[in-house]
Design a protein around this nucleic acid. Structure first.
Lengths: 340, 340
DNA sequence: TTGAAAGCGCTAACAG
DNA sequence: CTGTTAGCGCTTTCAA
């Protein structure tokens, strides 16, 4: 230890001085602190880590960093984690199971103390994560699976769908169609359930022809909308499982010469940046992606502190309520949409 | 070492087996590899790192992960880095100099082998980075400063601006205004220079009243456009330093009852997701943010391999050419915009 | 070809 | 209150 040599004292004295150990004279402590400044000393975290059995690293795995949703979630998590003195390792699965596994192994090799992850779309078999969570504190967010041994943070997609449909009904729309995602992904399944449940609650029938599943992009939204407009009795409102679907549908509605929101109301999902910018702006469900990430980080911190990983561990489930953002695409007559 | 005990051989034998050392019998090697599988052994990277003086960690600092541009750059860098066997630490400066410094110190403490960074908007004094680059291989990207001791990766903003203006002139527009960013930020300064240079090249005068600096958002774009439309001789085309500015300007143009691209042509900058989606779609300059990140990572890898950090080191400068994406907002008459 | 020994920088236990 | 010692898990001489 450099400092020890410079001052002619023992390394352990230095160590104590730096860790504010009680058994040290304030004299030596001061001398050490000064030397630290002089030499611009940085403790070697690998040595400390090796000795203490702690790396100070948390791994965060997402399908892709460039997805707005995940980028924001990372932002939220990073803030909490770095605040708690952890460094954050980032990796992407690229929606690919094999790659996902490899990246997680990288985390393990780097000796991360905990992992926050969102599953790849491709990953149907979650047993890998189950096994992992027995070894390392793990929190899954957004893309999760059902298992009471794994901690998860998700938004309440059911509630989000209900809020969307309720809102459309309040605005006076009667025939609400749902442009859905594929129901083998849990969140989309829940949105479909919420949609049906809200209809039922209001005594409205569920019509098979008003539910269309597809990938979440603009073109699929346009296709689906075309189909709907061809129906004998087309819907007068659209609840889409994604803002991109909603946006594509809106294009098609305009092409058909119909007006939004006068003739057809539209509500999206996710609060993509896009939805506030286009005209008319799109009413949507905000998923609070940043606080979703932050919540996942907090949950992980709790698990780390309680030191429970193995057998005795009780998984935590956190469900964040989504929020309805009313914009122009769903408000007719003199109603005033809330700002932003 | 677990494996050594299990097999009743020495740790050094195991080490050699795992690192493919020549001085080892293939017999023992096989035995070791088998045991590795059996015990699901993971070498402790902190121990290895401590011994070898390498952490396998690269730090990447950006103003904010949620900015589309930086998220994509991270994606690009992460791919290269993880492919090379490095793990990537992420941190955000939040545009704040003090925070930026703290995060970098975190990297140093974590013993990163190299750093990729983009400066906080607030950071006017780059001496901190100069000092840092003497200690640790450093590559700055996008938000950089001029110094021949620091490696940088940027796009050629001047060229991007020239391409934009050239294109507008080719499309037959005559009076081109520039909605600029603030010129104390290098990229925006360069775009202004490129704008002026392109005008000059074509023998057109530079008009003071056609250059408006502002923050890069929709509202500022709208404001600026209002001002321009009030001129005795308003411009017939807009080159905006950001797609958001362009988008705001387009709103205002429509409000004024003018048509895009027939009456006024518009070109933006950055290829934000938005610009492909809105109607009319916005012609823009693509910054290749993903390959910008990847290039920064590659440059860093080169520096690490050449082992040059201290005195003898020659900084590298990489300049990526941007690309013009022609869309609807700038193409009148029968011209065909390229797809996407 | 293998093993013994030393040590990377740090901390925790114990002895002084 | 301070120093000595041992060892975290690994790699690298060097000697066997």
């Amino acid at each position: 230890m450099d400092i020890a040599n410079t001052l002619g004292i023992s390394p352990s004295a230095v160590s104590k001085a730096l860790s504010n150990h009680p058994r040290i004279s304030s004299e030596t402590k001061l001398a050490v602190l000064e030397a630290v400044k002089m030499l611009d000393y940085q403790p070697n975290s690998m040595a400390t880590g090796l000795r203490k059995g702690r790396s100070g690293l948390i791994g965060m795995l997402v399908p892709g960093i460039h997805y707005g949703f995940f980028a924001t979630a990372i932002k939220g998590a990073e803030e909490i984690l770095s605040q708690q003195g952890y460094s954050v390792l980032i990796a992407q699965s690229k929606e690919n199971s094999a790659h996902e596994k490899k990246q997680i192994e990288g985390f393990v090799k780097a000796q991360v103390e905990g992992i926050i992850a969102s599953m790849a779309m491709e990953t149907k078999d979650p047993s890998f994560y189950k096994a992992l969570s027995a070894d390392i504190p793990l929190v899954l967010f957004d893309r999760t699976f059902e298992d009471d041994r794994v901690s998860t943070v998700i938004i309440d997609d059911f509630e989000g769908a209900v809020k969307a449909v309720d809102h459309l009904l309040e605005m006076g729309y009667k025939r609400i169609a749902h442009l859905a995602g594929f129901d083998h992904i849990l969140p989309f399944q829940r949105r479909i359930e919420g949609y049906k449940s809200a209809l039922q609650k209001h005594g409205l029938p569920f019509r098979e022809e008003y539910l269309l599943q597809s990938a979440l992009n603009k073109d699929e939204g346009a296709n689906a909308m075309q189909q709907l407009l061809r129906l004998a009795e087309p819907p007068d409102a659209i609840f889409a499982a994604s803002d991109y679907l909603a946006f594509g549908a809106m294009k098609e509605i305009k092409i058909a010469g119909l007006r939004i929101p006068e003739d057809i109301g539209v509500v999206g999902f996710s609060n993509e940046e896009l939805s506030a910018q286009v005209s008319p702006s799109i009413t949507t469900i905000d998923q609070f992606s940043e606080s979703l990430g932050a919540t996942a980080a907090e949950l992980l911190m709790e698990q780390l502190k309680s030191g429970t990983t193995g057998k005795e561990f009780t998984a935590q489930k956190r469900i964040v309520s989504p929020r309805l953002l009313v914009r122009q695409s769903s408000v007719r007559k003199g109603e005033v949409p809330s700002p932003l």
